[in-house]
Amino acid sequence: MSRYRISRADLPFAREFLENPRGPASHGLQRVLNRMRTDVAGGKYVLVVREPHRRWVLARLTGRRGAPVELIPEHEFDDLLEAERTVFRLRWKALTGEALAP
């Protein structure tokens, strides 16, 4: 088992992402993103469109057909890049146990 473990050594890549979520990502950042984005469907973060191309709310997939997507209404966005940064921070905390500095 050699699944990548994100650590403090990846902080430069976190900064890279927060500065430019759309990339292109460096190899180091891509490795971090590959780890973060390979969650199973159950609990995976997604965005639910409130207004197409304008407004979104964070949500989690349930991984079960027929079960409603779970909305997280405290995270609403009018900017997709801000949504990416928010989810990156949430995942960083979940995977390392530490919050990313603002």
Partner: peptide, 24 residues
């Protein structure tokens, strides 16, 4: 809805529309 790799191959968060929620 079902494919967790979608975010990975799209390089961004997956956006679900009202139609997706209805399909779910």
């Amino acid at each position: 809805l079902d494919v967790p790799e979608t975010e990975l191959v799209c390089g961004r968060l997956t956006e679900l529309t009202a139609e997706d929620l209805f399909m779910q």
